[in-house]
Design a protein around this nucleic acid. Structure first.
Lengths: 348, 348
DNA sequence: GAAAGCCGTGGTAACGTTCCCACGAAATCA
DNA sequence: TGATTTCGTGGGAACGTTACCACGGCTTTC
């Protein structure tokens, strides 16, 4: 048999005040005598009172619940985002409702409905929908995360700064003597790809390189995709050192496997630079040098923006979080041994 | 300006029935005319009604919320557990509140309080506390997960079957010609270690091997821990093939690095078997052969048990989920080339 | 044919909290 | 001193739903 949990009325009785006064004391309102507050708090401790969030939400409209809708909590990047969001939420006494959409419209819609029914105060969403209808109908404050947020420029959102990331990566490649790397990119349909390419082209223009002369392969954002892309790259490349900038760590790791299978060595014969910062990159051989996205910071920042959104404060627009280089062992340093002698340098 | 959301009363008015009838129709109760139900459902659709879960929870005592308290959502294993739990919860129309405790008593206690205040219907908990006080005070239905659940044998819990996992691993080692491997274990304080060792000893007895004669090293459950342990192992081992069973994949990956640093090759000189099934093991070189825990299934099963617990159905006691072998490239096959010629075979 | 049971319906209370208003006492102002 | 403000307090309504009870009409039973 489970005993009835004490309510604010029990506390009020024990303290000898009305439930209004007890409520004020417990919620930290100012217009209560110190003496009354003391008595109420003591009584609450004595009876083991714990506020009923449902009742609070019911009456005040604020539930202390935040929603997080991401493609897959199993993906290390999204796990980091979730962790950051959860920590920042907890700091502010709020709890996080987590949902995985698996890039599925139906699931996303159903999760958004669940969020509404739970009366969350707001949500952080990585949208799978490519039109704004679903989100527009959401009806609650929300913040977008991830690169697909770019499709909704008018909405408050937080993402990694792909432009800056590409720049960091290219600077590093140049410093190691690979000014004109080959590219392994994601599917043409993805927004992130376009942004990546755009910045890459800017970089080429600055350095007087013809981007059209650089080898480029597409593939899914998976190990298999990277593996296949690298095989194609190696078929085109016969001699000299090959440097590759992959748009995704999993692709980079797949590419590394392809290099090994071709009887070549990384980084001696092929240099590989990744993008994401997945933990697995630390255990590959060689360790994967990569541009890491600040997943945790994105999650935290998204919660901050969401709070502003909820409070009706002027919206942030798009927030871009800076990425950073993690240097491990997958890049050869050609800057000293054979300055400027990369695969395609001076071809065109 | 955000318009007031339609309530069940709006639906009832539109349908021309009382709110009682509307409520019955919407909650799928049986004692309503088909005609009335139809009218109510149509009205609900027309006004865009969505049930208020807070009010339901307030009145009925069931919130449709489940809690999940794990050490760290960022850890791939726990992410899998969370994913499984979330999917199974969603199947049953419930939402998951996720918290990371970071093995910290204070955080755990505060998360449990948050769950109580949110009036969740139940919780799945990987307890960090080593005494039962906190959990005993929890006051809501719950199911324990992870190996530390072993400290609370009276409570319903779900974990991986370490005994079976060790057996699978050993069988595989034997089949490859490594009947007496060295061990890399976790810290002495951890429950999982004891269970691992116990089964290992049983295995040795069955095969007439003196476990005391086998090299054994401890370390933290991290890459660094495994790295250091393997270095110590290699100092003791001068010649012949060395086979190692690591109690954790991260340790195994660290060990692999140590092997490479010592100028040896895996699997030619050293065979390594891991335990966990982390994704990173697929990208190491060689790929890590390992015994994988069924994280997702554990999460799903835990939710099933929790439903039983909530419904007051007879408790399950401890549920053990079977692990499976993932064979990649980190074990040499000595069974043909040099039958039974492992490092320590026939020493004692 | 009367009593008893079933079924669909509607009205009302209850869940636990916060919000709003009114009240009296003390403090301040003219 | 009398009028006005301030402050702490208490009472009651409200949030949106489900649980409970009572009612009338119908069918079943003896």
């Amino acid at each position: 048999m489970r005993r009835r949990r004490p309510t604010i009325i029990d506390v009020a009785q024990k303290a000898g005040v009305s439930k209004s006064t007890a409520g004020r004391a417990l919620s930290g309102a100012s217009n209560v005598t110190d003496e009354a507050r003391e008595r109420v708090l003591e009584a609450a401790r004595a009876v083991g009172y714990e506020r009923n969030d449902l009742a609070v939400g019911m009456r005040s409209g604020r539930t202390g619940l935040l929603g997080l809708v991401i493609p897959d909590i199993t993906n290390p990047f999204w796990a980091e985002v979730a962790r950051g969001a959860q920590d920042r939420a907890a700091e502010n006494g709020m709890s996080l409702l987590v949902f995985s959409s698996d890039w599925d419209h139906g699931r996303e819609a159903s999760h958004l409905r669940a969020l509404r029914q739970a009366r969350v105060d707001g949500a952080i969403i990585n949208p799978v929908a490519d039109n704004f209808d679903d989100l527009d109908r959401f009806g609650l404050p929300f913040v977008l995360i991830g690169s697909s947020a770019e499709r909704f420029p008018a909405t408050s959102s937080v993402g990694s700064d792909i432009a800056q990331a590409v720049r960091i990566g290219m600077d590093h490649l140049v410093s190691k003597g690979h000014p004109a790397p080959a590219l392994i990119l994601g599917p043409k349909s993805r927004i992130a790809r376009a942004r990546f390419l755009r910045t890459f082209h800017e970089h080429c223009v600055e350095r007087d390189i013809d981007p059209a002369a650089l080898p480029m392969e597409d593939g899914e954002y998976t190990v298999e995709g990277g593996h296949a892309a690298m095989k194609r790259l190696l078929e085109r490349q016969r001699a000299g050192h090959l440097a590759v900038f992959a748009a995704n760590d999993l692709m980079a790791l797949g590419a590394m496997v392809a290099v090994r299978e071709a009887g070549l060595r990384c980084p001696e014969d092929v240099s590989i630079l990744g993008f994401d910062g997945v933990p697995a990159g630390a255990f590959s051989w060689p360790g994967l040098t990569t541009v890491a996205k600040p997943g945790r910071e994105i999650g935290m920042r998204a919660v901050d923006c969401l709070f502003d959104e909820i409070a009706g404060r002027p919206e942030h627009g798009r927030v871009f979080m800076p990425c950073r280089l993690i240097e491990r062992g997958s890049l050869a340093d050609l800057s000293l041994s054979q300055p400027m002698r990369t695969a395609w340098a001076g071809r065109g």
